[in-house]
Structures are given as C-alpha cells and as structure tokens.
Nucleic acid binder design. Structure first.
Length: 629
DNA sequence: CTAGGGTTAG
C-alpha cells in the first residue's frame, strides 16, 4: 500500500508547479483508461493505473471515476479503500464526479456507512441529483428500502431536482407486493413529470408489476409502450413465465418473431421454461434450433433450461445427452436432470446422480434436496430417502424447511408408515403447512386409513380452506370405504363454502399449437374424426380388458372425459409409433388412467401425462405410476 | 475526456 502511495506523495510535494504537465501526461492515461472501462476490461484498467502511478504521473479528477468503477465491478474492497486515500491525497475529493463514483463504489461493496459518509461530509454533494441517485440506488439494492425512500423524501423536501435515473434507482425497491402502492404512486409521478418517455423507465415499472404479481397491470403497461425494446419483450415474457402463464409466453414469443424482433438468451430462457411447464416439447425443439442458429450454444443458462425442458417433457434421453455434453455443470444443471429422473419414476438413477454430484464436490442446496427426496418417495426408496433427509443438517448444514418435511411425510406415507409420518409432523420445529398435512392425507388414500385421513383433512382445510383438491381426496376416501354419509358431508361442506370444482380440461401440444379439450367438448374442428377415433380406442380397450371383472366396472362409465378427447386427437394427428406424446392434464381420473394404459398398448407408443401434482409415464401398456390409483 | 439506471435458469 505505502509503496504505491509513495510516488504520489513525492510528486505532489516536489513538483507542485508542474501540475500542468502531470495533467497532460495524465490525459494520455485517461484516454486509455476510458477505452478499457468502456470495453469492461476492468482488471486491465487497474493494471494500467498501477503503471500510471509507477511512471510518476498524477491521477486527476478524470482518472478516478474509471478506476473506482473498475474496483467496484471487480468487487475489490481493499483496493477501493486504498483508492479513496489516493483521492484524498490528490485533492480530488471535492470533485462531484469523483464523489459520485466513490459513493457508488462503496454501495456496491455494501459499505453503506462509508458511502453515506462521503455523501454527508462534503456539503456540495448533498445538493446534487447524481449523488442522491448513487446513494439511493445503493440503499435500495442492499435492501435498505426505507433508507432509500427517506433519501428521496429529503431530496424533494430540499427541492433537489430528480430525474429518470432517480426513479430507476427507487422502483426496484417497490418490486414486492407490500410496496406496490408506493410503486404505483411513483409511476403516476413519472407520468406527471413527463419522464415516462424513457424506455428504461417503462421497462423498470413493467418488471415491478411483474414482481408484485400484478401481471395484468404489467401487460397494460407493455401494450402502452409504443417502441418496445428487447428488454421490454424479455421482461414481459419472463414475467408471464414466472407466473406460470405458459400459453401467454408462447403467444408473445410468436408476436415478437413475427414483428422481426430477434430474441436473445434471456428471451429463450423464459420461452423454454414455459415449454417445460406446458409439456410443449415440439416448440422446445424449435427453440433449441434457434439457440444453435443464433450462436447461443455456449450459454450455460440456456443449457440448463434445455435440460429442464426435455426432462419435464419426458424426453430424458435428450435431457441426459445435453447434460452429459455440458463441460461445466453447476448445481442447477444437476437439479434439472435429477428432478427429471425423479419426476418420471426413475428414482434409482436420480439418487445415483445425486451421489455422483456429491463426489464431484458440488455443495447441495435446499432445492435439490426437494428433488432427491421426492425422487426417493416416488421410487419407493424409503430408507435411502430418510438417510438423505437426516444428512441435510448433519452433513451439509442445511436446515430442512416445511417443503422437505412434506416430502418425507409423503415418503413415509407411501411406504405405509403412517404413524411415523404423523410423529414426524408432530416433531416439526415449525408449524406444519398445507402441503405437509396434504401429503399425509394422500398417504391415507393409498392405505385406506379413514380415521387419520379425517384428522389430516381437518388440519389441511383449516390452512387451505379453498383448495378443492383436498375435499375431493377425502370424498374419494369415503366413497372407497362405502361411507356415503361422509361423501355427502363433504359435498355439503363444499356447497356451503361455495367451492366449485372447475371443469376438468386437458391440453395437447400439436404443431406448435395448444389444443384444449373440455369434457364432452364438440367445439374442435376435427370433432367428428376425434370421436370416431375415440370409439375405436374404447372398443379396443373394452376388448382388451374384457376378462377382468373389476376393471370392467371402471370401463362402464363412458362419459367423454377431456383426457380421452386429447388422446384421441393426438393419435389422430401423429404417427404415434415409437413417439412420445406429452399431454398435460389438470386432473386425470382413475378411469382414464386405465384407458391410457390400454391405449398405449394399442398404439405401442409412450405417453407422458402430467396432472396437477406429478407425471404419469406409460410405456407399451405398463404404467410407472401404479401406486397412484 | 469524467458520475447515477432497467431484463436472466432448477
């Protein structure tokens, strides 16, 4: 430190009158520094700065902003504090540009007190918009929202002008539902002051609405922005995608392409995540081609999204190929592939991969444990799952959350260890939430334990009174045990609480379009052919199933379920042999389960059907999810 | 010649 300070001091002490030449030589340095800073070559810039000091030149007010920014960008707090000393020694502290850079740099390190001191100790800076902006956005980014807001109020009280950058610094702090009202009043303020022409302002408010979950306001704003930038499109697309509105994402993506806007990596991440949610593998494949043609193949974010998309669409082979070919796999890559195997009932592969990941010294997090535990539970690896659960805290210092407890309750419950599951719930360090009791309720359904089911139901309905699924579950438990009084009681309960079972619907992706079917639907243009195909399938299923008496009863109900329509449509339009059909169902009933099982035998293809909670995998007449019904 | 800002995966 002192060695670098030394020439600086000597220079200033020895040659005060040659400051002009020092500035002149400094000028050359500054031009080079500007170039490096522009290109983001921050470490080069710091190297150059050291050369500057060694050569005996004096850094001036034009030098510091570049250097401070570089130090901040590389997050080198030590060199940053050192630079603060240099600034003081070279007498540049009174320069507003330098002050602002210092404030911004300290904020990026999280040294908010230092930042505030720079701001507070120089009276000039407290009158400057830019200094306020720097400090305020620093506070907001380090989650000190109230301090940031106070600063904004102070600014207005003192009559310091604010501009669009002020707003841009403040709005991200409003991106939680609790602060939405404040954000909306800020939005009004920008309209009033005519700042809303700035595209970045529009983008910023757009993502604020998205983060607050008011997706409708976001869309309204999106439509009002006349000249949308790529970031505008991306913010809207990832907003829809994060809120689970997959079809809206695909629609918007099509609009974007048809307007000739070229997507970037961020766009495609959002699109892929929606393809994963919708099971829209065909569009996912198109996106993969686009990634190659645009030269984004190197991007690890996109690779992870592709793995996740293929895995969740049931194409584990392709997911695995991409995963294996990835040179640098991170935790998210492992989570995507492990989650994919777990979801489709390949629990052994999933845990094998997890162990392999541990061997490669990647530290697990809470999210991957959710995947591993549910993989164990679906594959019946009960004790292995319990071992993993206990290892979380012991080996990896991860405190299990209620999401992990619900996995373990499911794990024990499926294995029929209901009392252990119940004991686990009672030993939980936090209050058990809906999913935890729901897992117990689901286990009671499998193992026909009416008493415990009633207990779990009471708890879960208290926590999630409007979740219809739980009412349906208990009602089914009652009807299986021929308890018609119970069924009736639940029905009355649902009516009293005005809970309506929303109409079941299914959709299937075909040639980039999503076809939606409701029970008894006759609105599809191919209705006639679909029903003809359905008849053929029903006949086959009945014949195939003829000799089994119990299942005959199941097949007796010929109501035209949405699932059957979707399947008939899919078979009508594809050469299904050897292909994989992905159908997303919100609800797949027992009768349809059997139906699909028989049909997949008929056409000898693979079905992946997804309902509200899990994937059902059918291959050539067998079903990997046989514990479910 | 110089400062403050917006979008990204499991």
């Amino acid at each position: 430190m002192s060695r670098q300070n030394l020439p600086l001091c000597i220079n200033r002490a020895r040659l005060p009158q040659t400051n002009k030449t020092a500035a002149a030589t400094g000028g050359k340095w500054n031009t080079q520094l500007r170039e490096l800073s522009k290109q983001g070559q921050y470490s080069q810039a710091l190297v150059l700065y050291r050369q500057l000091l060694r050569s005996g030149a004096t850094p001036n007010a034009f030098t510091f902003p570049f250097i401070l920014k570089s130090s901040a960008a590389l997050s080198l707090p030590l060199s940053g504090t050192q630079l603060h000393c240099h600034v003081i020694k070279s007498g540049c502290l009174s320069e507003p540009f330098v002050q602002t850079s210092l404030i911004s740099m300290y904020c990026k390190f999280g040294f908010l007190v230092n930042a505030y001191n720079v701001f507070d100790e120089s009276p000039d800076s407290t009158g400057l918009t830019v200094c306020y902006n720097a400090l305020m956005s620093g506070f907001i980014q380090k989650s000190r929202f109230s301090n940031g807001l106070l600063l904004f109020r102070e600014m207005r009280a003192k009559g310091v002008a604010f501009n669009s950058v002020t707003i841009l610094g403040l709005v991200p702090g409003c991106a939680i539902p609790m602060h939405l009202n404040l954000g909306m009043s800020l939005h009004c303020l920008t309209l009033k002051y005519g700042l809303s022409n700035d595209l970045a302002i529009g983008n910023c408010f757009l993502s604020m609405y998205v983060h607050c979950g008011s997706i409708k306001s976001a869309r309204k704003l999106f439509d009002e922005i006349p000249e949308k930038g790529l970031i505008t499109w991306n913010a809207m697309i990832s907003g829809y995608s994060q809120n689970g509105l997959g079809t809206e994402v695909l629609d918007l993506y099509r609009d974007m392409l048809s307007l000739g806007v070229c997507p970037d990596e961020v766009t495609l991440v959002g699109v892929l995540s929606s393809c994963a949610n919708l099971g829209a593998q065909r569009i996912g494949r198109e996106v993969e081609e686009k990634i190659e043609s645009l030269g984004f193949g190197y991007n690890p974010f996109l690779k992870n999204s592709l793995i996740s998309m293929y895995a969740r669409c049931g194409n584990l082979a392709r997911a695995r190929a991409i995963f294996d070919a990835m040179p640098a796999k991170n935790l998210v890559s492992w989570t995507a592939i492990i989650g994919g195997y777990g979801m489709h009932g390949h629990g052994e592969v999933a845990v094998g991969l997890f162990d392999e990941m541990i061997r490669t010294d990647i530290h697990p997090d809470k999210a991957i444990f959710v995947c591993v535990l549910s993989a164990c539970s679906h594959a019946g690896l009960t004790d292995k799952g319990l071992d993993y659960f206990y290892s979380m805290e012991k080996k990896y210092n991860l405190i299990p959350g209620s999401e992990h407890y619900s996995c373990v309750v499911d794990l024990l419950g499926r294995a029929g260890r209901l009392s252990e599951a119940r004991n686990l719930i009672e030993s939980m360090p936090m209050k058990p939430d809906g999913p935890v009791w729901g897992a117990l309720l689901g286990a009671c359904k499998i193992h026909k334990n009416v008493e415990l089911a009633e207990l779990a139901f009471d708890k879960v309905v208290e926590l999630e009174p409007t979740n219809i699924g739980y009412y349906v579950l208990l009602s089914n438990i009652y009807s299986e045990s021929d308890n018609l009084g119970g069924v009736l009681r639940i029905r009355v309960m649902m009516r009293e609480r005005r809970l309506k079972k929303d109409p079941g619907y299914s959709y299937v992706e075909f040639k980039g379009r999503t076809h939606l079917f409701m029970a008894g639907d006759i609105s599809h243009p191919q209705t006639k052919e679909i029903y003809a195909m359905l008849q053929k399938l029903e006949d086959f299923a009945k014949k195939e199933n003829g000799e089994r008496k119990k299942d005959q009863a199941i097949m007796r109900n010929t109501a035209v379920h949405s699932e059957r329509l979707a399947i008939a449509f899919a078979l009508l339009n594809t050469n299904a042999k050897g292909d994989i059909l992905v159908i997303k169902n919100l609800r797949i009933c027992g009768e349809c389960h059997l139906f699909v099982k028989l049909v997949s035998k008929f056409v000898n293809c693979q079905f992946v059907i997804r309902d509200a909670t899990r994937f059902h995998h059918f291959t050539g007449g067998s079903c990997s999810c046989n514990d479910y019904w």
